[in-house]
């Protein structure tokens, strides 16, 4: 038995014991997302149009992640709408930024891993960089969208007499707290990823000017910023769409 399988078994038992049906859903969603990501990688390597693979694959990942929380229909549909909007907005930010930054591909620090590989592949690395950057943000977007949507719907149920602007106001406060902790989660995720690289930079005695201009540092900072932007944008769009939906249903 390998370590991966053992850890997966432990996780499965814990999730079912503690989370019950929802825990099972969470466990299954992780593997479905892994499968979707593997499909995305395979299809892109088969030279399918990366844009469509990314949009469809990204959409599936968002849907799986949001459904896995087992929220009710209102919450799910609100969270899905918002996360799709934010994903498309982010893509509109990521594409020009990646093209201007020229930070895709590899740099000298990767040379060990690249040994013996033929680098001239048919898929441009600029495109692969965009795919990687967008996919990394999706989990955080979905999580924030579900949490805020669920909070808003709960507020609406708890206070049936409150008018819409009161709910929106309370939702804003709640949403800001959710975004605060979500940004934190994202930050530590990226710091963990960045740990080995930062040790390498210090061991090689890079100056700050050199570190700030390496491809690897640049793409790490940009990825972190895309994720933070994604999480932050979830709140205004959730409030806006919630407002729109409930105003219409009130008439």
């Amino acid at each position: 038995m390998t370590v991966t399988i053992a850890l997966a078994l432990i996780l499965f038992v814990l999730m079912v014991l503690i989370g019950g049906g929802k825990g099972l859903g969470a466990f299954v969603s992780l593997w479905i997302n892994f499968f979707v990501l593997a499909c995305i990688i395979t299809l892109i390597s088969f030279s399918f149009n990366p844009f469509w693979v990314l949009m469809i694959g990204g959409g599936i990942i968002l849907t799986i992640t949001i459904i896995s929380t087992g929220s009710n229909e209102n919450t799910t549909s609100l969270a899905l709408t918002v996360s799709f909007i934010v994903m498309i907005l982010l893509l509109l930010v990521i594409v020009p930024t990646e093209y201007l930054s020229l930070s895709a591909g590899f740099s000298v620090e990767n040379s060990e891993a690249l040994e013996g590989l033929s680098l001239g592949i048919n898929v441009p690395f600029a495109t692969l960089g965009i795919c990687a950057a967008l996919l990394a943000t999706l989990g955080a977007i979905a999580e924030a969208a579900v949490a805020i949507a669920a909070g808003l719907n709960e507020l609406k149920q708890d206070q049936p007499d409150a008018n819409l602007s009161q709910i929106i106001h309370a939702g804003q406060g709640l949403g800001r707290e959710i975004v605060g902790t979500a940004v934190n989660t994202v930050l530590f995720g990226y710091l963990a990823d960045f740990l080995s690289l930062s040790l390498l930079f210090t061991r090689l005695n890079y100056s700050f000017a050199e570190i700030f201009n390496t491809k690897l540092f640049t793409s790490a900072v940009l990825s972190l910023m895309y994720s933070i932007l994604g999480v932050v944008l979830v709140l205004p769009f959730t409030l806006l769409i919630f407002h729109q939906q409930n105003r219409n249903s009130g008439k």
Binding site: L30, L37, I44, E143, A147
Partner: peptide, 25 residues
């Protein structure tokens, strides 16, 4: 139970997505 799934996927995507260019290569 409500947050497990979403949180796992946040970290999963951060840890795995950045390996996409290398995996395609």
């Amino acid at each position: 139970g409500e947050i497990f799934g979403a949180l796992n996927n946040v970290l999963f995507l951060i840890f795995i997505a950045e390996q996409l260019p290398m995996a395609v290569l």
